[in-house]
Design a binder for these strands. Sequence first.
DNA 1: TTTAAGCTTAGAGCTGACTCTAAGGTCAAT
DNA 2: ATTGACCTTAGAGTCAGCTCTAAGCTTAAA
Lengths: 151, 151
Amino acid sequence: MLKISELAAHTGLSAHTIRFYEKLGLISASERSDAGYRFYNESDILRAEFVKTARNIGFSLDEIGELLSIQLDKASHSCQEVTDITRRKLDEVNGKLAELESMQQTLIRLLESCCGGPENANHCSIMDALEAGIEPADSPSINAIHNRRTN
Amino acid sequence: MLKISELAAHTGLSAHTIRFYEKLGLISASERSDAGYRFYNESDILRAEFVKTARNIGFSLDEIGELLSIQLDKASHSCQEVTDITRRKLDEVNGKLAELESMQQTLIRLLESCCGGPENANHCSIMDALEAGIEPADSPSINAIHNRRTN
DNA sequence: TTTAAGCTTAGAGCTGACTCTAAGGTCAAT
DNA sequence: ATTGACCTTAGAGTCAGCTCTAAGCTTAAA
């Protein structure tokens, strides 16, 4: 039986966050002391670790809620439901990756174009590019590979 | 001279957003009609486009403010200041990319492990992995390349 | 002339995931 | 007995970047 600060130390979540997750129905303390202190038993701890793991992978708290409700009654949920959630998340991640890679390419291009020296910025090619309204570069190669796996 | 909705159409920003950016000091209307309507002249329009471009690249509104203040007095700012802002942003983008690529690898690994079929989730390998507390995979190869350019 | 679309303002609300505060009760050690 | 660390709650605040509302004024078209 762990107290909240012990569960916090164990999971790496703060006590505040654990209470917050409890409000959302993600984590609960099966028992309370007479004074109202939360106590977490083995299965509470496993559940908290599940939440932490899922959060690390990038699932939103809502999605973690979905996954937990599947976990509570696996017999009436299918693998497909689980992969659907996972695939949705992967698609989202791929979309963000594409955006960020486009930004990355643009930023690299800008940095390569500018001397970066102590000269004044009158002829700075980065400023010129921003004023001219450069297009965001899209970085096709890497994402094309990633996306192929998901579509 | 454009009215706010015309500038909105021109830039792809909403009129609401343009007013919001004005509050932050990013965009301004050099003139007003007798009734108080904003009117944007050529240089206002260029400034709005600058903001839009910088935002597309991924700069925060604060950073855009910095860039604009450099633009207003290029003679007293150096190329180095501009590249510093740009490099900072690139580092940030690279950091997010690394995180997302790690998530991506983990999600792909999960999807590959699961049948995704209509069977019940009693033996779903994704659920198993979440319960077992999988490590986030870090995807070294691609980021190692990206990061090499920035450090 | 009337109507609809568009403009103005200050300020509130939204998103997601926390993070913190205030006011108070509990517990272990000295 | 007192200190200090820990626990409780409801609820407010934070971040960034919008997004919307209300109440009222202006303008262009039919």
